[in-house]
Design a protein around this nucleic acid. Structure first.
Length: 274
DNA sequence: GGCTGGCCCTGTACGC
DNA sequence: TGCGTACAGGGCCAGC
């Protein structure tokens, strides 16, 4: 399940491959989730950015083409099982879209469970993507501060894990890194009140676990692969997620698992407090 | 307007 | 061996 470290790893690899390339052709699965992909035809790639878990490919109309006026953005969300790469087979039954490039290469989007999404929008216009439009601060940016996190969490009585997954208090955290950050901060995922000192610990924990995931090239539990097809390495460094029934690395108590607001959740019953 | 829960989707694991 | 069922979860949306 690609979260910020996985998406950023993909972005960093895609940017040099796509920058400056002209999209000459495209094909997409008829589902409304993917059918917008050909909207990139006739545009040249200015660069590949990331916002939260979204990949944003900046497009400018190429001279001499009949592409619509104005810059566009190709927005790609990988969902649960999305993969992007130059070497994925276009005739794979799970390929949902592909784009042909003017250097003879192509970019293929494969998504087994079809939880991902592709959109082509006027540049900067995210009204059709409400989660992207309302995204909270980037975790490594200056807008993500301990006090800002505390204030954002205090505005809602929803469980702290649910708030982390909602992308509004901070962008890019998914189920794995939410469990890891809450474990590191010593906060129970079901907590509904987080004071300033705990918010400060959570702020540091979010940055720590995302940076560690990024340094390890992401977490591969099943589907995630880098652009070159390699698995990530962070799965071996997880302290909490997916380790229910095994000892807490901090206190030795057995980690527990339950469903919190519909998401599988692992936590330590001893050192994570509500 | 905020919170909660259901739905989408398909491969895998497991029980019978 | 084959079938049925449960499960995984990000984003969206309906209902409360």
């Amino acid at each position: 399940m690609p979260e910020l470290p996985e998406v950023e790893t993909i972005r960093a690899a895609l940017d040099p491959l796509l920058r400056g390339r002209l999209v000459t052709a495209a094909r997409a699965h008829p589902s409304a989730k993917f059918s917008a992909a050909p909207g990139a035809i006739g545009h040249r790639v200015e660069g590949v950015r990331r916002r939260g878990k979204y990949l944003l490919v900046d497009l400018e109309p190429a001279a001499g083409t009949d592409a619509g006026a104005g810059r566009r953005e190709l927005v790609v969300h990988l969902g649960m099982t999305g993969q992007l790469g130059p070497d994925l087979a276009r005739d794979d039954p799970h390929t949902r879209a592909w784009w042909e490039l003017d250097d003879g290469g192509h970019l293929t989007y494969r998504d087994v469970r079809r939880f991902g999404r592709i959109a082509v929008v006027p540049h900067g216009d995210h009204r059709s993507l409400p989660t992207l439009a309302a995204l909270g601060p980037e975790p490594f940016g200056p807008d993500f501060t301990p006090e800002g996190l505390w204030r954002a969490l205090a505005r809602s009585r929803a469980r702290v894990k649910t708030q982390l997954l909602g992308q509004r208090v901070v962008a890019g955290v998914g189920n794995i890194y939410a469990d890891e950050a809450l474990w590191r901060a010593g906060i129970h995922p079901g907590a509904r009140r987080v004071g300033p000192s705990r918010a400060e610990r959570l702020h540091a924990a979010v940055r720590h676990v995302l940076a560690a995931g990024l340094a390890n090239g992401g977490t591969t539990l099943r589907d995630y692969r880098t652009v070159t097809g390699e698995p990530g390495r962070h799965q071996d460094a997880l302290a909490c997620y997916g380790r229910a029934g095994r000892p807490c690395p901090r206190c030795g108590a057995l980690l527990r698992r339950a469903v919190v607001d519909g998401r599988g959740t692992t936590w330590c019953p001893t050192c994570q407090r509500t």
